[in-house]
Amino acid sequence: MSVAGECCCGNVDTREQKLTEIIEKYKNTKGALIPVLHEAQELYGYLPLKVQKKISEGLDVPLAEIYGVVTFYTQFSLNAKGKYKIQVCLGTACYVKGSSKVLDKLREKLGINVGECTEDGLFSLDACRCVGACGLAPVMMINDDVYGRLTVDDVEGIIEKYRNK
């Protein structure tokens, strides 16, 4: 994974310029922080220190306050997302059907915690609220693929499938 501002492919990273434009667009509006964070996350995939600092300077909002907002809302992420974004539903129906055990198995299998990304950049793991497939509970999504009626034993096979893609 490339870190904000530096890119491994040798091409110029245009994201910084785009971030400046986003900040400029909202700069003088009230409540600018959340929309700027949204668009910045769309641009980078997550909100690392470097991005938050630039927003802090651009909007004249203390970095500690921005960090507070980013860690308050689950939709914002401090960590890069993987090539395959795993989201395990912890909504009521899935939870009752044992989705937290599925989540635990994924944590063990991937060696990462919720909100983190594997070192090879392949998988990131998140818990989410209802995905609207309660009939299939417990449910997880990997990018746009939905997996339902999961058991703990299914986890390994599914992960391997993506690993070998």
Partner: peptide, 20 residues
Amino acid sequence: KVGVIDTSQRGFKTIVSSAF
């Protein structure tokens, strides 16, 4: 107007902290 501490996280996990 220094602003190096604020609340972070939410609910029971809320703490006062510096950025990151």
